[in-house]
Amino acid sequence: MSTPTVFLYNLDNPRGAKIRRLCLPLGLRTALVPRESYGLPLGELAAGKQPEAPYGGEGFDDEMMVLSDCPGRLLDLLLQSFRRNKVAPVHLKAVLTSTNREWDSVALHAELCREREAIRAGQAAAHPQKPL
């Protein structure tokens, strides 16, 4: 099994540094994903491959986190650490799976945004606004 790794997008900043510090005591390796690697399939990114040519498409500016080779208990500990240290969650997060490992970062970002919007729409339908 490979080293559990957290891939961080758009977190090359002080907030990302806090998240990287949360990962250290848990034995989670972290990697900042540069925009040039957005076109690389996630499975290849996790394997440490570099893109043959830099990604030239539009990217995205949202923060995103992808966990690779991270057992469920370790994921739970990481999320607890976010709460315990009062670090706001990264809203777009995923675990590398056999389904998404062929996707590139942009495709995963689009899917996570669709899922987030579907959840918001479902919550809005379940809790409609009362008329004034």
Score class of each variant (00 low, 15 high):
108 L>I: 03
79 L>N: 09
124 A>E: 12
107 A>T: 12
122 G>S: 15
125 A>T: 12
80 Q>N: 13
114 R>D: 07
122 G>N: 14
86 K>Q: 09
93 K>C: 06
117 E>F: 08
113 C>V: 12
105 S>M: 02
100 N>I: 01
92 L>W: 01
111 E>V: 02
82 F>V: 02
108 L>A: 03
103 W>D: 09
98 S>E: 15
108 L>P: 07
113 C>K: 08
91 H>M: 13
110 A>L: 09
109 H>F: 08
83 R>P: 07
97 T>Q: 02
88 A>R: 11
105 S>G: 10
97 T>L: 00
86 K>Y: 04
124 A>D: 11
118 A>N: 13
100 N>K: 01
93 K>Y: 09
78 L>R: 03
122 G>D: 13
102 E>T: 13
86 K>I: 01
77 L>M: 09
97 T>D: 00
117 E>Q: 12
90 V>T: 01
81 S>I: 05
116 R>G: 10
111 E>Y: 05
97 T>I: 03
89 P>V: 03
116 R>A: 15
126 A>T: 11
94 A>E: 02
116 R>W: 10
104 D>I: 06
114 R>A: 08
122 G>L: 11
127 H>R: 11
93 K>M: 13
89 P>R: 07
95 V>H: 06
122 G>V: 10
119 I>F: 05
95 V>K: 07
98 S>P: 09
91 H>F: 14
101 R>F: 04
116 R>I: 07
118 A>D: 14
127 H>E: 09
124 A>P: 00
95 V>W: 01
116 R>P: 05
77 L>Q: 06
89 P>Y: 01
100 N>H: 07
115 E>M: 14
77 L>F: 03
105 S>V: 03
99 T>V: 15
97 T>K: 05
120 R>D: 08
85 N>E: 14
116 R>Y: 11
113 C>T: 10
86 K>N: 07
108 L>G: 01
112 L>S: 02
83 R>I: 12
106 V>E: 02
107 A>W: 06
101 R>A: 04
105 S>E: 00
83 R>A: 14
101 R>D: 05
124 A>W: 07
113 C>E: 08
88 A>E: 12
84 R>K: 14
89 P>C: 05
112 L>K: 04
123 Q>N: 15
81 S>A: 15
100 N>F: 01
85 N>M: 10
124 A>H: 09
88 A>T: 10
83 R>E: 14
82 F>M: 08
82 F>W: 08
96 L>W: 00
81 S>Y: 03
78 L>F: 05
103 W>P: 02
79 L>I: 05
80 Q>K: 11
110 A>W: 03
93 K>W: 08
99 T>C: 11
127 H>G: 03
124 A>S: 12
119 I>Q: 06
97 T>S: 08
117 E>R: 10
123 Q>S: 12
115 E>Y: 13
101 R>W: 01
101 R>V: 00
114 R>W: 04
110 A>H: 09
121 A>W: 07
77 L>T: 03
88 A>P: 03
89 P>W: 03
82 F>Y: 09
94 A>R: 00
